[in-house]
């Protein structure tokens, strides 16, 4: 019998710390895509709130439940993070192994993302979610109290870390030559 060992997307790549910024991988949790069927947005929202304590958020927002969260992730699309989905009148897909999730903390996240993302992430408020790009990768960016949470497809884990590390190092280096 072949023994396979589980590896997280950023195994061996993170954590990183430089210039007061930190980048770490978030723990692997269930991720489920939920796309309500036509006319079922309200029914899905109610059922979800009952099951996990969070309803469907508004466009560009997230809602926290009991150790779970629901993110808006696109046109008529939501991600349930941290719990499996109940029966819903929606298109439901398990995407748990499909994503890389990292936290960019330290209060300079907007400065880092300014070099990689075409959206002004400094203008986001805590709990805001956007779909945009990090470098050339399609990404989900969530604004947190401590910084930003970033999600890209699992196969892009090393590219994501590479892009972020370059920028973090560059910003840290510029601190040294400020005067």
């Amino acid at each position: 019998m072949i023994e396979l060992s589980a590896k997280t997307p950023c195994a061996g790549l993170l954590p990183l710390e430089t210039g007061g910024m930190s980048l770490r991988e978030l723990e692997a949790v269930p991720i489920t895509s939920i796309m309500p069927l036509n006319g079922k947005h309200g029914a899905v929202s109610t059922a979800l709130e009952k099951a996990v304590g969070a309803a469907l958020p508004d466009i560009g927002r997230s809602l926290a439940g009991k150790s779970t969260e629901v993110l808006w992730t696109g046109q008529n699309q939501f991600f349930l993070i941290g719990a499996t989905a109940p029966d819903l009148p929606a298109g439901v897909t398990d995407q748990s192994d499909a994503w890389t999730r990292v936290a960019l903390d330290g209060g300079r996240g907007a400065q880092v993302l300014a070099r990689l993302c075409p959206v002004d992430c400094g203008a986001l408020e805590v709990g805001d979610v956007i779909r945009s790009q990090i470098g050339h990768m399609s990404a989900i960016i969530i604004c947190r109290e401590a910084g930003f949470e970033l999600m890209v497809f699992r196969a892009f884990a090393s590219t994501l870390v590479h892009e972020l590390e370059l920028v973090m190092n560059s910003i840290a280096a510029q601190d040294e030559i400020r005067d």
Binding site: G74, Q75, Q77, I130, R131, Q133, S138
Partner: peptide
């Protein structure tokens, strides 16, 4: 197509 955004 808002390909890298909301997919609309």
């Amino acid at each position: 197509h808002h390909e890298a955004g909301c997919s609309a």
